[in-house]
């Protein structure tokens, strides 16, 4: 056999590569086998058909005048949700500033590792857990929601702020100092114009996420439209759920549109 002369499309794998592939394939197979085996896929379906429920969710609230007033009421609760996101977002932007300065390599120096660790830890905690904690601490209501949003958002805002601080162009600062400017002038004319639009854009971007997050926070009693959402869902009051779904979708899409417009003007 002239097997030696055969050419394959791929090079012969070394033993190390073979072992690696074997390990990856085996662990993935095990992972999926275990998760499919341990997972219960049963569904407790309700008596009504999906069609009926969809009709009650999205059609009845629009055509039955008895539900029209609740659009107004839910609209105000949505505004409360947005207020929670906004108040939390502003507070988070302020709290994130010192952390970001600490975490950025060029401003934080050696301590930047600590700052980054802190920001990573916050980002790996789901917003709902912050909600649980703050509702437990200060009781249910929108105050707990604002606290949860503000602490949770520090993670992402701080990370993006610190990245934008790290990307500051040093040349203009050097130029200002070389022509006799002091530190404050260097900051005011050299640094601020570089980072301010980016910071605004980052905070606005996080605000879009926070509106969604504060909708979820209502589930643990942290105020806003999530509270009536979970109550109506438990009572299977689908028309009421439908009103809330419609309100949330409409508001969120509008906010994303406006915020996206502003952000594209900023940068």
């Amino acid at each position: 056999m002239k097997n030696k002369d055969r050419i394959s499309l791929r090079s012969q794998r070394t033993l190390k590569q073979k072992t690696m592939i074997y390990l990856v394939v085996m662990s993935l197979t095990f992972l999926y086998a275990f998760s499919l085996w341990s997972q219960d896929f049963s569904i407790a379906s309700s008596q009504s058909s999906p069609g009926t429920i969809l009709y009650r969710l999205f059609v009845v609230p629009l055509i039955d005048p008895t539900y029209w007033p609740s659009f107004v009421e839910r609209g105000w609760q949505m505004i409360e949700t947005i207020a929670i996101a906004y108040a939390g977002g502003i507070a988070a932007s302020l709290f994130a500033l010192p952390v970001a300065i600490l975490a950025a390599r060029n401003s934080g120096g050696r301590a930047s590792y600590l700052g980054k660790l802190f920001l990573n830890a916050i980002r790996s905690i789901p917003e709902l857990l912050f909600g649980v904690f703050f509702v437990a601490a200060v009781g249910p209501g929108s105050f707990a929601g604002v606290l949860a949003i503000s602490v949770n958002s520090i993670g992402m805002i701080g990370k993006l702020y610190s990245e934008s601080i790290e990307s500051i162009d040093q040349a203009p600062i050097a130029a200002i100092k070389a022509s006799g400017g002091n530190d404050l002038q260097a900051f005011w004319y050299g640094i601020l114009p570089q980072i301010l639009p980016q910071f605004l854009s980052i905070s606005l971007f996080r605000f879009e996420i926070d509106v969604r997050a504060s909708t979820i926070l209502g589930l643990v009693g942290a105020g806003g439209i999530g509270v009536p959402l979970i109550l109506s869902q438990q009572q299977r009051h689908w028309e009421e759920v439908g009103v809330i779904l419609i309100i949330v979708i409409v508001f969120v899409v509008i906010i994303d549109k406006i915020s996206g417009k502003i952000r594209s003007n900023l940068v």
Partner: peptide
């Protein structure tokens, strides 16, 4: 842009309670 909780509520309503 829809918060994922909305999608979950919708699925629970239409499909039923449970992990599916």
């Amino acid at each position: 842009s829809i918060p994922n909780i909305i999608m979950v509520v919708l699925m629970v309503a239409v499909v039923g309670l449970g992990s599916v």
